[in-house]
Design a binder for these strands. Structure first.
Length: 774
DNA sequence: CAGCTATGCGCC
DNA sequence: AAAGGGCGCATAGCTG
């Protein structure tokens, strides 16, 4: 992976770190670095680079001539394998500049091909660099020779090659994806992984602390090549390490990784070019619609603001007085005038401390809490305030996150939005989307999606799996009743309702046969839907009761009758959890692993406070290290475990924990929350992960479908259980039919049939095209 | 100033 | 007693 522009690379590091609560990346103070002159920074970069890489000076080389490249590529082809990395001036793979290319193959030295380095003194491009046409020529040779290409975060480098060199490379092994497959819970940065698994003592460094504030194209080649070439070599070494575990025949000890290799080779790696194609193609945005919406929503926002002012003006004195009386020398109240409505803190202060709204449900100002207040108060000021606030937030969200943001994301070069689909963006194996996120475009509000349109002469084909996750649940649990609902084509939730509630199926449908709404049926159906979703998300009866606005008793008896009618679902949940408890992981239907190490935790962990037992005399002990490891006397463990088990409620538990500390100097760590979290994740990971596998499989089938290729049909967007493609209008219906086939084929492992819904439109969520008129 | 966390909210 | 799975992103507000 190329990490170049200091700012952006930090952002990327941040992401990786956020993902896995890991080591903080060390970086030199940025303000200090930014103030120094460029030559000064280069000088200090030289010191840093030498510190890390001087030992590699003779092992790495710079390729400057075609002759040198030719010889190098000859060796690559002989080796049949190569690790490739690119260096650019930032993270923009469409409009950025290629600094150079890093290569490594076993019979070659690690190398760097400078392409667009400039002199940091003159700003002129440096002589003796190979240009794109030459590079393209030799990489075509590599591709034609079927050389296995290894990359770290191939998505980035493939886009660089496609956009800045003009060649689409196939990737055999992406070490970043492999890392996700092997352990989704750890950070996936190249340096950290290499240091951890192939470490040679060089240590973890980042482009940030090496080339602080210097764009890579401005780094002198003699300095940069050491850093860059090593990236390619590290990638190769990481690949070698990974392939010991991720392979056809892993050792007995790692037998469970066999299915992971299948997922990697049959799902993840074949998906790489599919996503690349969608990202390169991009989505068209109708700027006229965006402008219209912008105007409309800004007007709405203005109305909200006016209403606000009108509502709070009468209580201005109250607020000012509050601010006065709560201002001390050391602290200020979290409220100001004029009130900032964007600040949850200020709103909370206003509602609960100035207007004295009851805070028995907490001081949160989220939608749920505000609605609860609405139901319990008759205070008109409060009611109007909340009403306006909710409207304001809605409008503000749509405006800033979508309506005003998306047009800025249109690439000036292509006129399209090119988001990132992060292939392993989630721990479960689902994809995610970013910059911008196209997976959370509002759908209830149909206006926003209408900004997305098809190209001239083309249309959008949206195909989504209907009830994808419940069907997977039906299959994986093997519950006959659940499966029956699907094989007979009955409405699932109505069927569930009729069994669990013991009323006729027809009385659980939303509509009467004549099409009119059956209120009772609708309610029954929606409750059943809530139950099915609740157990897939690990939701408890209490939350279910709150959702359905029924009593706790009713909720738990609903749950009970559900499990009585669908015993295998209950069994599936229990089996999954006990497997996870035993092994610390679960697997999806296609064999992807989700590691849940917290499932292996003991509910309580005992240790002596300060690492020492009460009787320990520091002056008397010779081997203090051992003393620190001292495990707690089993008799005491038993004693306190028994007491903890008798203590119901978090308050009583805390009491026991304090007693243990006071009486026996024992520290007790409670893991029940972590374990409960992991338990909830268990079932959900299996279902959600399998759904992810299915969509990925369907996408690959579509991408490789000759018929779809011939009709110029391409996937543009994924929204988890939905695949949005584009094709010429005249082929649309045929394409939809084939996509449908592929989506179902991707699920042919299931004993329940998959159902899909399709829409063919010019505009996302727009009117369906009337083919009778074409 | 940038980086970070908390809060809140859009999607499946 | 409390208990909602998986994301990305905007804003506020704190910190170094």
């Amino acid at each position: 992976m190329a990490l170049f522009a200091p700012r952006s690379s930090r952002e990327l590091d941040k992401k990786i770190i956020q993902k896995a609560h890991s080591v903080k990346s060390v970086f030199v103070g940025s303000s200090k670095g930014a103030k120094r002159g460029l030559s000064e920074r280069i000088a200090s970069a030289e010191v840093e680079v030498n510190r890390y890489f001087s030992k590699f000076k003779d092992d790495f080389l710079i390729i400057r001539t075609e002759e040198e490249l030719k010889n190098y590529v000859d060796n690559i082809i002989k080796d049949g394998i190569v690790a490739i990395d690119t260096e650019t001036d930032g993270l923009d793979t469409f409009n950025g500049t290629l600094a150079g290319i890093c290569l490594y193959s076993p019979s070659n030295k690690a190398s760097y091909i400078p392409v667009h380095h400039v002199s940091y003194i003159t700003g002129q491009e440096v002589n003796n660099q190979l240009k794109e046409d030459i590079i393209k020529k030799y990489f075509e040779r590599v591709v034609n020779a079927n050389v296995k290409i290894i990359m770290h975060n191939a998505s980035f480098d493939l886009k660089v090659f496609a956009n800045l060199v003009g060649i689409r490379l196939p990737c055999y092994w992406d070490t970043m994806i492999a890392s996700n497959i092997l352990n989704e819970n750890e950070p996936h940065g190249l340096k950290a992984l290499h240091d951890k698994y192939c470490g040679d003592g060089t240590g973890v460094y980042s482009i940030t602390n090496l080339f602080e504030g210097i764009i890579f194209t401005h780094v002198p080649i003699k300095l940069g090549y050491l850093y860059a070439a090593r990236d390619a070599k590290m990638t190769y070494e990481l690949y070698k390490y990974q392939s010991q575990f991720l392979c056809e025949n892993p050792s007995k000890e790692h037998e469970d990784l066999k299915s992971c290799y299948d997922v990697f080779m049959n799902i993840e790696m074949p998906l790489v070019p599919v996503i690349l194609d969608a990202e390169l193609r991009g989505v068209r945005l109708d700027l006229a619609t965006a402008d219209k919406l912008k105007e409309e929503y800004n007007a709405k926002l203005a109305v909200c603001k006016e209403q606000f002012t009108a509502i709070v003006e009468p209580i201005k004195d109250l607020v000012l007085q509050f601010i006065r009386t709560h201002t001390t020398i050391t602290s200020k109240p979290k409220l100001e005038w004029p009130i900032n409505f964007d600040s949850p803190l200020q709103i909370s202060e206003l509602l609960f401390n100035v207007l004295k709204v009851s805070d028995k449900n907490g001081k949160s100002t989220g939608v749920k809490e505000l609605n609860a207040i609405m139901e319990s108060t008759k205070n008109d000021t409060v009611r109007n305030l909340i009403k306006t606030l909710l409207e304001y937030r809605k409008v503000q969200k749509l405006l800033t996150t979508y309506i005003e943001k998306l047009p800025n994301e249109v690439n000036p070069k292509t006129g399209k939005i090119h988001c990132n689909f992060n292939q392993y963006g989630t721990v479960t194996g689902r994809m995610s989307s970013s910059s911008p996120n196209l997976q959370n475009i509002p759908s209830k509000n149909k206006e926003i999606r209408k900004m997305f349109v098809a190209d001239e002469g083309y249309c959008l084909i949206g195909g989504d799996y209907s009830q994808q996750e419940p069907r997977i649940l039906a299959h994986m649990s093997g519950d006959e009743q659940l499966i029956h609902a699907y094989t007979t084509g009955k409405d699932l939730y109505a069927h569930v309702g009729s069994l669990a509630l013991k009323v006729p199926y027809e009385d659980c449908l939303e509509h009467y046969p004549d099409g009119s709404v059956n209120q009772e049926g609708k309610l029954r159906r929606s409750r059943m839907k809530a139950i099915v979703l609740a157990l897939m998300y690990g939701k408890g009866t209490k939350a279910l009761a709150a959702d359905l606005k029924i009593s706790l008793e009713d909720a738990s008896s609903l749950m009970k009758s559900f499990f009585t009618e669908f015993p295998k679902v209950n069994e599936f949940i229990n089996k999954s959890q006990s497997f996870a408890k035993c092994n610390g992981y679960v697997k999806t239907l296609w064999g992807r692993k989700r590691r849940l190490p917290d499932m292996l935790l003991d509910p309580y962990e005992f240790s002596y406070a300060n690492g020492v037992s009460r009787d320990f005399d520091p002056l008397d002990d010779i081997d203090s290290d051992e003393t620190n490891d001292l495990t707690v006397d089993p008799v005491l463990v038993q004693k306190w475990t028994a007491r903890l088990n008798k203590a119901f409620g978090s308050f009583k538990k805390r009491e026991v924990i304090q007693q243990a500390l006071a009486e026996d100097n024992i520290q007790i760590k409670e893991n029940s929350l972590k374990i409960a979290d992991a338990e909830r994740q268990t079932v959900n990971s299996i279902i959600q992960g399998s759904a992810g596998d299915m969509v990925k499989r369907a996408s690959i089938l579509c991408y490789n479908d000759k018929r779809l290729q011939d009709m110029d049909c391409h996937i543009l967007i994924w929204v988890h259980d939905e695949i949005i493609s584009t094709a010429p209008i005249k082929y649309a219906r045929e394409c939809a039919k084939i996509i449908d086939e592929n989506m179902k084929k991707a699920a042919d492992k299931l004993v329940v049939p998959m159902k899909t819904d399709f829409e063919i439109t010019k505009i996302w969520y727009g009117e369906e095209i009337d083919f009778s008129k074409i």
